[in-house]
Design a protein around this nucleic acid. Structure first.
Lengths: 127, 127, 127, 127
DNA sequence: GTGGTCTAGACCACC
DNA sequence: GTGGTCTAGACCACT
């Protein structure tokens, strides 16, 4: 089982591709979908699968390593770090919720309205 | 009362500043916080307030006008268009909720978990 | 009979309003619709009719005077110059034809194609 | 063979340069002179050739992309879109002819006069 | 004072 | 090298 199908690049987004890749992998790690010591696909393969240049994926891996989420042993490939930085476990979900609430409040919505919108969204069919 | 304080630029975001400005104003309009015929701050003033170059804000205004959200008689300043494009009233909130749900589900969260995270976020003190 | 209805300003054009006014009056003069010694409407009236600022129309008049197409005697108002600059009589039409041909040729069209397009256009109902 | 020589900027025109560039390229596409998948010159090169700033040409390219006439993979250069928006083949020529006729009629010219002016223009030496 | 545009040079992300 | 964006300052047309 590969992580590839879980990653989707939006080429029209104003967020640069390398950042989209980094983001999504970081999320998968924090969420536990990717477990410690698990191997990431080789740069070239992931790049090919996503239709990106090798350097783009390489940069995402580099930043993940700099953040301590991933380790790169010479020829050993890239693996999820055994020891995750503390507090990055399920915080992603919380962070996304906070982000949503912040955006909604910035638009003048009240708590009730925010909750109602969520309920509606939850009941929509998955695309 | 000015809209300036409602707009916040994140200089660390990978989304370009002109797009952040455009976005947030578009949201404020769709949400009804900015009412038809209301005046937008002058390009130069908003630019100064946000610490941006004039051209950057000018571009945001321009794209808003191209989208029909805003009208601009040359020296008359920029105003919210009287007639909003159809279907933009509360859709913004809904869209943001859907976005949140989608992101959460992509991470493998269930409905209950998603709702719980929201409740937690709502109870957090406003920053 | 006023010239006002003959003049139309396109506020969305990239050509500045003062230039549109100057153009159209110059054309009317060269074509003979406006005859020597005939009076132009007062700046303020034309401005009001066209929905422009006085200064905008004033500038158009100024440039027409600088070109010798018009004279401005103190309180006498603005009149078509008795003596038209030589060669500006029916040349306007010719100039517009040349412009059309040039544009068409720049696009790679041949003479026959150009003539055919004109014939088609002539047979179209007047809008 | 490059398209550069086909594009001419008139610095005295009141139409802004970026718009002149956009226009002319759009015309060349609609006319079929520029074929689908054909490459446009790099922003910097075209800018240099035309004596414009890079940003000016970049804006023209950008608007063309927004209009769907052109595609741009970031570092892949800019290419004519494979699928042209419907109804743009020879319409450009027709539109220019209609424009000419409209301008002439606005000046009081009759069909015969209009056709005669064209014939004269066609026989003039190419500048 | 208000928006629109241009320039010149710079940095970024991408291939 | 390729497009995208930003800045800083400038000029223009308009009200």
């Amino acid at each position: 089982m590969s992580i590839d199908p879980e990653i989707r690049i939006n080429p029209h987004s104003h967020v640069p591709p390398f950042e989209q890749v980094r983001q999504q992998i970081a999320d998968l790690i924090a969420l536990g979908t990717l477990r410690p010591d698990q191997r990431l696909p080789p740069v070239r393969q992931l790049a090919a699968d996503l239709g990106l240049a090798n350097g783009t994926v390489a940069r995402a891996y580099q930043e993940l390593e700099a953040a301590g989420l991933v380790t790169t042993g010479r020829a050993a490939g890239t693996r999820i770090a055994a020891a995750l930085p503390p507090g990055s476990r399920g915080d992603i979900l919380a962070a996304k919720a906070v982000e949503y609430v912040a955006a909604a409040r910035r638009l003048g919505a009240g708590d009730e309205e925010i909750a109602r919108a969520l309920t509606t969204a939850l009941n929509k069919p998955v695309e």
